[in-house]
Each structure stands twice: as structure tokens, then as C-alpha cells.
Design a protein around this nucleic acid. Structure first.
Lengths: 207, 207, 207, 207
DNA sequence: GATGAATGAGCGTTCATTCAT
DNA sequence: GATGAATGAACGCTCATTCAT
């Protein structure tokens, strides 16, 4: 069947789509939607600007894909960590450490997502779709937090609020802490992130 | 003297400038810089588009004012609370409560500031000026936190990291918590914000 | 009668009109019609831009006056020389010497007149009026040349063509000889101008 | 090879460039730089106004080309005649006859060149480039005149001044003699032009 | 009479999108 | 499928002109 072994043509097409999308993510993120031209993206992807429209029906659709695809990868990665092994607090520590360290490199991408959400009307369902993806992560995190509370590893409280506040914190540091090189600071920020989960004394072997 | 009582003309001009600036803040914040036309702002302010250029020399300058002027008000308010009376933790509690409750209404404004900072090159000194204003607040907060640590009200640690993480958190919840109506959640978010300061047991009479 | 002794107000008004017109001549000549703003003229004349419209009904009308008034002075001066005393060739020599030396300073004014004539449709009757003034000079010069021919001072021929060619030459050197400082060249240009009149041998005591 | 025979596309592009440039020359010359809109040129050339910017990067660049390209053709033609065969005076006669007859059709083009030179600061190097092209012609003419003087065909004097005065005269008649139809006058103007070279008696078989 | 704030038509230029090749 | 020439809507900004003060 054609669907089983992708022909060389299909492969080439996937590559081109990927090249265009990667260029779009990088440029939209760094310069914003309006300040990025289709021609800039085409040049960065090594195709003619006409070709971009073969793979994406409009600039808006390309932006949509540039926002959603990395977000889904982020969500999948996070769910993977949370579904991993170990006691709840261990998994939370792993999650926070990985995400805080990772977020420092993503300021411009985060900014693009914010812009997309901020202009919900302009970009149609995009904001909703972003929320859906993020909610999946928050929801899973909330249940992990609840587990930790039940196990006596975390101070009791609203697991939903804890999960939401952590996601907000993660975004916040990614967006406003501009000093990317100060690694001591970023290690402190991991500890600060953990404080939002209020781990109980006995477990405090870190920070 | 003429300089003591502003003439009717001067008053009218101040009003118009204000109307234009308010319209600009609202529209830039909701739709972004590039997606907002001078004509849109003029229409919203009830003036002709030519008039906008009587009050601001360019779209960039208007954007600059739209970003900086509210930011300075925010900074002044925050410094006022931190310089108030009471023990350090009391003042921190007052600050967090006020700011978290206030930030819910400012998502789109925050988004505009983020956009300005994200495109530092595009907007020249604006990003720097934003940082300068914010740093004033962070710096003051850091010294207040240090005071609290010394007084034994807060767990010891890096007061700079605490201050920075709180500002990031504040931004983060403003930007990503879209559910503005859920007041129970927002009250929880105040508590979560306080956790970043790690107040010591004895003082925990709230939440 | 009011018309006999101009009141102080009327005098002031004449002065202002003059100041505006002088500024307009200078600026239109140096920068062209479209590149000169009413505000530039007002500033140079020391009045507000609104005042310009009290003295001239429109920018076009101001341009018209800026072109015609100096032209009329030029014509009056030329006619004065031609109506002076002496034999025809003497008067022609005086005219050429004076005009060639004078034209070097008027390049930008000449350019403005050319622009006005070139855009006849745009500036309504202005081109016609310019022609009328110039024709008065050419006509008088032609009759002076005819006199000189009859007197045997100039080679016989079409006095109209001689007069027209001289006026064209005068304009031409004013417009294209950019080297204003080279006085030796300009003295030669006087001699070249006289050649257009073909003075007969016996009279050649100059150059 | 593709490079040998221009493809249909290349041909079409050359045509379009030509159409735009011709329209620009005509309109800039008749209405001036500022008074001519890109849209006017596009309409006259039968393309959309966006297309103009595919062929010329800016209005200024288009103006530059509109001024320089015909000037270079004029210079090449003139040099061709001066480098031709025959004794110096014969070649000068040929040059004057051809150029005077030709200049009658070029008033508006000349006016455009004048405007460009007059606003040297505005148009940057354009004025310089115009001078460079014209100087080539003046320089060659001066050496031809010197040849004629040495050969005893022309009255002795400053060959530079003669060449400069002739070029000025040519410009002058092109600009100020508006009566394009009066062919008798134009024939006289050829004779007047020759007078600037002061051909010596023996050769005077014309006029 | 003199001012300058206000207007809005019009400009040069960009760029997403279409389509003939 | 891939290209890039062509289009035209939309933008920021200027400035002649009007008119309330």
C-alpha cells in the first residue's frame, strides 16, 4: 500500500513542510507575526515564497501550526515525565528541574504563544486549541499533586490551584527572567518552583 | 498667572492626549503593535488620524508611551506599599494580595509589555527602559525580603531569587490564568504567591 | 485720504506680505514647489503658518507671486537699460554685461521659473503671464537690434531671432554654468553673448 | 543556450521596464518629481503600481534612471558626430544643426534634468552624475574647437568658454523658446548657435 | 488681525496572495 | 510540483487648508 512505504516524493514533501515550519517557528517567535514575512520564512527554508502556499493555505494557518506543533511536543514530554516511575514528589522534582532548565531557552517561543492567545479573535480557534493542550498538562499535574497530598508528601490544599500556579510560574520565569546565563539564579528558580508545591519537611532534602 | 490655572485649551489638550493614549493602550494590548492601525486608535479616541501625530511624533513613540506610562504607575504603587508600615511579612502579604488581585485585569497590558521586551531590537531603548522600571521594584522587594529573613519571618535564602521569582510568578498568572471570574482560584493564587517567600510557621495565620 | 498716507497698520501689513513673499521666493527657488511647505515659509518669514493664508489665498497663489514679482523687476531693469542713452551697440553691450554678470546669482530663481513654465497646466495662467513679461523684453530688444542693424553696427539678419537667441542664451548660462566663482569664464561668457548680436568689425574694441 | 536567446519572460521584462521608464520620463518631465505619483506612472505604463517597485527599488531610483538614461544616449550621439569625418568646422556645423533641431522636442526632458541638478542635495549623486556625463561632451567639444582654431577655421580664443557657452545656449533655447512650430525661427537659431563658435569669414557659406 | 489645533486627502512603500509558466 | 512576476489593499505619515479662540 502507498501508505506503508512513503515514496521518495512524499518524503521530500515532508521534509519541505518541516523546513518551512521550522523556519516559521524560529522567525515568528523572534520577530512576531506581522513583522515576519512569508518571504523571510521561504528564504530561511530554502524554497520560493510561492511554495509556502503549497504547504500551508495562508500565513495564518502557518502561524497556527508554528504555535501548536511545538506545544504538543512539550505536552507529550511533560506527560511522559509525570507518568514515569517513582513517588509523586520525586516525579514532580524531575518535572520542575527539567522544565525550569528547559524554559530558559524558549522565551521567544513562549512570547509567540502569548501573542496568539492574547489575540484570540484574530486567530480564530487557535487560542482555544492552545488552552486544550495546556489543560491536558495541568489536569495531569493536578492529579499527581493530589496523589502527593494524599501520600503526605505535599501540604494539603487545592491541587488544581497548585498545578495552575506552577504552570503560570513556569511561563512567568521563561518570559521575564532575561538573564539566561546566571545559572546560579536558575538553580534557585527550581527551588522556588518547588515551593509552590509545598513539599513537607521530611522530604526536604533538596534546596 | 496663566501658568497657575491651566487654560481651557491646555486642559482640552491633556484630555485628548489621555484619550489617545488610553485608546492606544487598549488596542495595542488587545491586538498587538503591528495589527493596530493609527486609524483604529484615532477612531477609538474620537479624533482624526492626523491628530494622533500632533500628540505623538510616531506610532513607535505612541507605543512607547503606552507601555511605559502604566508601568510607572504600577511601580510607584508597588513601592508605596513596600515602603508602608508594619513588619516585613505584613507588607509582603499586602503587596501580594493587592498585586495578584490587580493583575487579573491586566492580561492584555502585560502581553503588550512582553511583546515590547521580546522585540528589543525592534523597539530600541524601550525594552531597556521597561527593565529599569521593573528592576527598581525587584530591588526594593529584595531588600524587603532580606529584612524579613533577618527578622526570622522568612526562611533564609537568596532574597534576589525570591524577589525575581515572585515578579515572574505575578506575570505568569496574569498571562496564563485566563479564568478571570473564578475568585476562589484567585484567592488560592495569593496563597501560592506567598509560598514563594517561604514564610516561617509561626507567622502562618493566613491560608 | 486714507490712500495718501498709509496708516501704521497698512505699513505693517505691507511689510509682512513682503517678508512672506521673500521667504517664499528663496525657498521655492532653492527646494522646489512641492518640497517647500507653507510652514517652512512661515517660519522663515517669522509668522505663523495660518497668517500666510491671510496674505495669499493658497500655496499656488503664493508661488505665482513668487515667480512673477521678481520677473517684473528684471523686465523693468532691462527696459531701463535699453531705453537709455548711447548708440544701439553701446546699449546692447551694457545690457549683456549687466545681465550676464547678474544671472550667475539667480540659478535657483531661474529654475523656479522654468518649473512654473514647464507645468503650464498645473499652474494655470502663470506660464502665460511669464511669457507676457518676457515678450515685452524680447520685443524691445528686437527693435534695438533692428536699430543697430540699420545703423550698420550689427550684421543684418532677423532681429527677432537674435533677440530670442540672446534671451535663451542668458537663461542657459544661468542654469547650466555651475562654476559661479570662475570670473574669467564669466567674462568670456559676456563676449560669447555679444557674438550672438554679430557686431561688425569696426566696432570691435572690446574683448 | 538560454543566455543567447532571451526567453519570452526576459523579453517581456525588458519591455515592461522600458514602458515604466518611458512613462516616468514623460510624466516627471511634464509635471515634476513631486507632482508625479507612482500611480500615475504605473497607469501610464499599463501596470499596477506595485509592479513599478519590482523594476525600480524606489521613486528616487526611478527618477534617477529617467534622468540619466536619455542623457547618456544624448552624450553618445553627440560624441559620435564629433568623432566623425570632415574638417572641424564641418563637424561643428553638423553637431549644431542636429542638436538644435533635436532640442526643440525635449523641453520637458531638459526641465527635468534642470530640476535634478537644481536640487543637488535632495537627489544625492544624481547631480554629480549628470555633470559627469555632460562634462564628457563639453570636454570633447572644447578639443574640437581648439582644433578648429588651430586650423584657422575659427577665431582664436578660449575653446573651453566657447564649448561651455554653446552647451548653455543649447539648453537655453530648448527651455525658453516655446514656439516649437516656427521652423524659420529654429533655422535661424542654428545660425545663432554657430555664431558662438565665431567661424572666420572664408567659411561663411551658411546663414 | 493672528494663531496653531484639527482635519483628511494623498503619498510611497510593503507584502499576502494568485496564477501563468 | 515549483517558481516568482504581478497585483492591490493597507499602512504610517505629511501637509495644505480651515476655523475656533
Amino acid at each position: 500500500m502507498a501508505s506503508q512505504r512513503p515514496s521518495r516524493v512524499e518524503e521530500r514533501q515532508r521534509e519541505r513542510r518541516r523546513a518551512i515550519l521550522d523556519a516559521a517557528i524560529s522567525l515568528f517567535a523572534r520577530h512576531g507575526f506581522a513583522e515576519t514575512g512569508i518571504s523571510d520564512i521561504a528564504r530561511a527554508a530554502g524554497v520560493s515564497h510561492g511554495t509556502v502556499f503549497l504547504y500551508f493555505p495562508s500565513k495564518d494557518a502557518l502561524f497556527r501550526a508554528a504555535v501548536l506543533e511545538p506545544l504538543e511536543e512539550f505536552a507529550d514530554g511533560s506527560l511522559g515525565v509525570m507518568d514515569g516511575e517513582g513517588r509523586p514528589l520525586e516525579r514532580i522534582r524531575a518535572l520542575v528541574g527539567e522544565q525550569v532548565r528547559g524554559i530558559a531557552a524558549e522565551r521567544s517561543y513562549l512570547q509567540m504563544v502569548q501573542a496568539a492567545v492574547a489575540q484570540a479573535q484574530r486567530f480564530g480557534d487557535l487560542a482555544e486549541d492552545v488552552s486544550t493542550v495546556i489543560d491536558r498538562v495541568v489536569y495531569r499535574l493536578s492529579s499527581l499533586v493530589a496523589e502527593g497530598m494524599d501520600a503526605g508528601e505535599l501540604a494539603p490544599g487545592s491541587s488544581d490551584a497548585v498545578a495552575a500556579s506552577y504552570l503560570a510560574y513556569l511561563n512567568g520565569i521563561g518570559l521575564v527572567i532575561l538573564d539566561r546565563e546566571n545559572t546560579a539564579l536558575w538553580e534557585h528558580l527550581i527551588g522556588q518552583g518547588l515551593r509552590l508545591f509545598a513539599p513537607l519537611k521530611g522530604d526536604r532534602d533538596v534546596e
